[in-house]
Write a protein that binds this DNA or RNA. Structure first.
Length: 696
RNA sequence: GCCACCGUAGCUCAGUGGUAGAGCACACCCUUGGUAAGGGUGAGGUCACGGGUUCAAGUCCCGUCGGUGGCUCCA
């Protein structure tokens, strides 16, 4: 008879099979009331699950009594159950003929995919009504009742009901090894709403807590673009209103630091539909941030022995045929630029687009390509001279702008664009130098992320799929390169994962993924080993044996692109850039016209010290000037009035303190702000000046 | 690319087929003030673009462009 081990190690024995709920009752009536599910030998189950064998049992309550937080399991049960309630409400409120497809819990909530019958539609305007219906179902506190059938019988039921989607789900379950199919009725089977579902669920609808329908999207059946288009309704649910409110606040907070919102507010960049989708116009403020960042990266590159180069934005088609970019990746490139005479000739001949594409592939029409990658140009620089092994490694760096035809639905803000500038570099080295070069690439990343305070990132090492033969290069070298990537990643001291099958066909790679303050992940740069391009371009160096050898290439763009990186940076800092990056570093605010002359003097002095400073000599009151300046997230505001002019001081209001920190001599301020800027924030001397005021 | 929703002043947004609105920003005037909005006046619009329905369209329909959310893709 079942002997049940609880998480604290204690055991309970029963002389008959019991349900998880009965065990909870046996422990205490309070627990029995609170509990919403169980974990039996690590597997999450309904509370009504019968236990007839020895097992480990964990009871799931909506909220942990000690921490006040919900476990992942509790949220899983609540959200999965809420998906059912939402689906029922939608069928009742919108249309009963809506076909249900699939409704799982996901991170931060749940969704339900459904197929709408012809002519039926709904929008976010209907959310309120659906939520009202959900409220009713929850108030009724109907039990989630599980019932099972043998596969044959279950399939027949589904066929009779005529839902191809549910039938498909069942077939998949059977393929995965199920010998029975299960349904959950919200109430009484055969009488109330039901759904084919593996479960588990909370015991009854009343236990769902707080919920909200969040958005509407579309999806494809099986994720296949050629298959049926489905409507996906997103929602979220929590154990209680407080948690839901907190989540919604986080969402609102995330929206406020969205780089697209801040980009507009702080005039960092502009996208103009008449210029083109996904083409970033860097406005003066954004250009400052980018320029400062590029200067910083360039300095570090020089320290590491990189040489800076410049290459044009286009190159002959032939070049990209050699590299393999054309026509292999033609779909993700802007169409080629072709010669006038060709264009004219083809037009006169009434040539179709398809014919044109064909003749370009065949080499009958020459043209140029807007470069989708910088490597071919860099390779040509490397190859413009013979190389001795003594020259290696050669490290060529360029902030190189590339253009890619991203799918229109994917483009947005600065993080997914069609024209972008990579902090690109290509390293040409010997097989033996590879490991050390990889370490060098990663140390650069480390320095820069640290300076920017972006310490919450992880590294993904992409390795070969052991079952595939698509990879180019010597398997022995691959093994060594993979090991080198692994070691280099380890040396960073941040979490990293190895992912088999994620390598490019031409070499293993290391990707950097950063997390922003609200927990979203962004893939930034990569470091990739390449055995393919040196082969394709027939690169060589002369070794100590006086024989030609093939160099190995490393592509590295550790920040991905300036666009995406700065997009992420805007969100990371919520627009409040550290002083060295801030478009406007200091603003001088004279109290009134009486102090205008001194204000101008302060302004000129800072300008001469190469500080990005402005003077607000408008005839507003000081309160209004401060408010205005605060909205621009300027690091330092200098309030100057007759008192300050008298003593040649400035009254400092530093961003983040939101109050008057007191006055310091003008010369001291200039010197300290300079130091903060040149050390890129390593010295935050200003605050030390005001220790007492700042902490008061 | 696919699906849904959206596009009104520089920005944020109201606007029920019948005379295009508010707040902020901007310009000018008054105000000259010590740490998050002083007051007044004014200017600002092809309601994304193109077609259609209607006596009448910002509003309804179709198309195009663009945005948002998702799906798919991502050298």
């Amino acid at each position: 008879m079942p002997r049940i081990t609880l998480p604290d190690g204690s055991t309970r024995e029963f002389d008959h099979p019991v349900t998880a709920h009965e065990v909870a009752k046996d422990i205490g009536s309070g627990l029995a009331k609170a509990v919403i599910g169980a974990k039996i030998d690590g597997e999450i189950c309904d509370l009504a699950t019968t236990i007839d064998r020895d097992c480990k049992l964990e009871l799931i309550t909506p909220v942990d009594r000690k921490t006040g937080e919900s476990s992942d399991e509790a949220l899983y049960l609540i959200r999965h159950s809420c998906a059912h309630v939402m689906a029922e409400a939608i069928q009742r409120v919108i249309c009963p003929r809506i076909e249900l497809v699939y409704g799982p819990p996901v991170e931060n909530g749940f969704y339900y995919d459904m197929r709408l019958p012809e002519g039926v539609n709904f929008s976010s305007d209907d959310f309120e009504q659906i939520e009202a219906e959900m409220e009713k179902i929850i108030k009724e506190d109907r039990p989630f009742t599980r019932f099972e059938m043998p596969v044959d019988e279950g399939m027949k039921k589904l066929r009779d009901e005529g839902s191809k989607y549910k039938l498909d789900n069942a077939e998949r379950a059977v393929e995965a090894g199920s010998d029975r199919l299960s349904w959950y009725a919200t109430g009484e089977p055969g009488k109330n709403w039901e759904d084919l579902c593996r479960g588990p669920h909370v015991p009854s609808t009343g236990r769902i807590g707080a919920y909200k329908i969040t958005s509407l999207a579309s999806s494809y059946w099986h994720g296949d673009a050629d298959s049926d288009s489905l409507l996906r309704v997103y929602g979220t649910a929590f154990a209680d209103q407080k948690q839901l409110d907190r989540y919604l606040e986080q969402l609102a907070e995330a929206k406020k630091r969205d780089h697209r919102v801040l980009g507009k507010q702080l005039r960092l960049f502009h996208v103009d539909e008449t210029v083109g989708q996904g083409l970033i116009l860097w406005t003066p403020n954004g250009a400052v941030v980018r320029q400062e960042l590029q200067n910083f990266i360039s300095e570090e590159l020089r320290k590491q022995g990189y040489q800076q180069i410049f290459t044009p934005h286009i190159g002959k088609l032939e070049l990209y045929k050699t590299s393999g970019h054309f026509p292999y990746y033609q779909d993700s490139q802007y169409p080629p630029l072709i010669h006038h005479e060709h264009l004219k000739m083809l037009a006169d001949d009434g040539c179709s687009c398809a014919q044109l594409a064909n003749s370009m592939k065949e080499g009958e029409v020459e043209g140029y390509l807007l470069k989708p990658m910088n490597c071919p140009h860099h390779i040509k620089i490397f190859d413009s001279q013979p190389h001795s092994y003594r020259d290696l490694p050669v490290r060529l760096a360029e902030f190189g702008t590339v253009y890619r035809w991203e799918q229109s639905g994917e483009i947005g803000g600065m993080t997914r664009v069609r024209g972008f500038t990579q902090d690109d570099a290509h390293l040409f080295c010997t097989e033996d130098q590879l490991a050390e070069e990889l370490v060098g690439c990663l140390s650069l990343v480390k320095i820069i992320f640290k300076t920017l305070g972006m310490e919450d990132y992880r590294v993904r090492v992409g390795l070969r799929d052991p079952d595939s033969s698509k990879y180019v290069g010597d398997p022995k070298n691959w093994g060594k390169a993979e090991q080198a990537c692994r070691e280099a990643a380890k040396g960073l001291g941040v979490p990293f994962s190895e992912e088999a099958g994620e390598a490019a066909f031409y070499g293993p790679k290391i990707d950097f993924v950063v997390k922003d303050v609200v927990g979203r992940e962004w893939q930034l740069g990569t470091v990739q080993v390449d055995y393919n391009l040196p082969e394709r371009f027939d690169l060589s160096y002369i070794g100590p044996d006086n024989q030609p050898h093939r160099p190995v290439m490393i592509h590295r763009a550790p920040f991905g692109s300036m666009e995406r990186f700065i997009g992420v940076l805007i969100e990371h800092f919520a627009g409040a850039f550290p002083t060295w990056l801030a478009p406007e570093q200091v603003r001088v605010l004279p109290i009134s016209e009486k102090s205008a002359d001194y204000g101008r003097e302060v302004f000129e002095m800072l300008k001469a010290a190469k500080v990005r400073v402005t003077l607000d000599d408008s005839n507003e009151r000081i309160q209004a000037k401060i408010r205005e300046a605060t909205e621009w997230k300027i690091p330092y505001l200098l309030i100057v009035g007759p008192r300050d002019a008298e003593s040649r001081q400035v009254s400092v209001r530093a961003r983040g303190f939101m109050k008057d920190l007191g006055a310091i001599p003008l010369d001291d301020f200039v010197a300290t702000v300079r130091e903060e800027i040149t050390t890129r924030g390593a010295a935050t001397v200003i605050e030390e000046h005001f220790q007492a005021a700042a902490t008061a």
